[in-house]
Amino acid sequence: MHVKHLLLIATLALAACASQESKDDELSEAELYRQAQSALDDKSYTTAVNKLKALESRYPFGRYAEQAQLELIYAYYKNMEPEAAKSAADRFIRLHPQHPQVDYAYYLKGLAAFDQDNGLLARFMPLDMSKRDPGAARDSYNEFARLTSRYPNSRYAPDAKQRMIFLRNRLAANEVHVGQYYLTRKAYVAAANRGRYVVENFQETPAVGDGLALMVEAYQHLGLDDLAASSLATLKLNYPQHPSLDNGRFVPRESMDERGWLARATLGLVETDTTLEPGETRASQDVQRQYEEAEDALPDELKTERKRSWWSRLTFGLFD
């Protein structure tokens, strides 16, 4: 019974869509455009998208065709379809590179990427957006940069420049977060490179001080005292109130690494704590250690008196 009801609903929906398409086919270009404008005014963006698409497909060379393509970008953007909005903007820019309102297409493309990260959770919960994937923020920054460089006198350029400042700060903060993650993983070369990248490429952002602090700590862990000292001097001179400084003394986030130079140079891939016997590997050492721990945990009455080699125990006596 439920299946029949679902089929009936689906049939009615398809019929309604077909009826609507049939009605749209009967409308003139001017009427379709008027209805699309009315839907935009009423914030019925799905309807506006459908009307504008119908107008463009039925009258591709009509008087409203170019305007419909431009307003379709806006309808997609307001309907929270950022990928469709960016695709429509790319198409308009490709077809009409000399259009007097092509700067608007660039601006909407940047806005679509700008809002792509700001979903419902980001709007209503205190999320740190700089810790999220910066892909959309980077795309938005690039689109706004194209707009301001190609159309510096555009009416949208001032807003685009303000958004670029915000996005640049976010991208710089993201680089710092990545560098701090590398510190916790003891990947000090990668952390130092991230800090240097922030200092060299994101000047005049609040993250420059954090980038210098990353460099100081990473160089200290690597034993590069000269580089650490010069970075610390720059940090003290330009950011004397930075949280990593306590009365002029640098306070590292992570404890100093006690590993050998080879372990530090290989980012922990090669440890030198214990000596390997010929033919032995780190994996076999781990298995041996686990076996010994399990054997020690056995009751005394179950422990064997026969002393076997680690190879015998590892192979369960198959090669004794």
Results as ranks from 00 to 15, higher is better:
residue 7 L to M: 13
residue 8 L to E: 15
residue 19 S to H: 14
residue 26 E to G: 09
residue 32 L to I: 15
residue 35 Q to R: 15
residue 38 S to I: 14
residue 40 L to F: 05
residue 47 T to V: 03
residue 50 N to C: 04
residue 51 K to F: 13
residue 55 L to I: 07
residue 61 F to D: 08
residue 65 A to N: 08
residue 66 E to H: 03
residue 68 A to L: 14
residue 76 Y to W: 09
residue 78 K to M: 13
residue 87 S to N: 14
residue 88 A to M: 08
residue 93 I to V: 15
residue 98 Q to Y: 13
residue 99 H to G: 00
residue 110 G to F: 04
residue 112 A to R: 01
residue 113 A to M: 02
residue 119 G to C: 06
residue 120 L to R: 11
residue 138 R to P: 02
residue 141 Y to R: 07
residue 142 N to G: 00
residue 145 A to G: 11
residue 145 A to M: 07
residue 147 L to H: 07
residue 150 R to A: 02
residue 153 N to M: 00
residue 164 M to S: 00
residue 173 A to D: 10
residue 201 N to E: 13
residue 202 F to D: 02
residue 208 V to R: 00
residue 209 G to R: 00
residue 226 D to F: 06
residue 227 L to Y: 13
residue 231 S to L: 05
residue 237 L to G: 14
residue 241 Q to R: 07
residue 243 P to Q: 05
residue 252 P to T: 01
residue 252 P to H: 04
residue 259 R to F: 07
residue 268 G to A: 04
residue 268 G to I: 13
residue 275 T to S: 10
residue 276 L to V: 14
residue 278 P to H: 04
residue 283 A to Y: 14
residue 285 Q to C: 04
residue 286 D to Q: 07
residue 286 D to G: 02
residue 286 D to M: 04
residue 288 Q to D: 14
residue 290 Q to R: 15
residue 294 A to Q: 12
residue 296 D to Y: 06
residue 302 L to D: 11
residue 304 T to R: 04
residue 307 K to W: 09
residue 316 F to W: 10
residue 318 L to R: 12
residue 320 D to L: 01
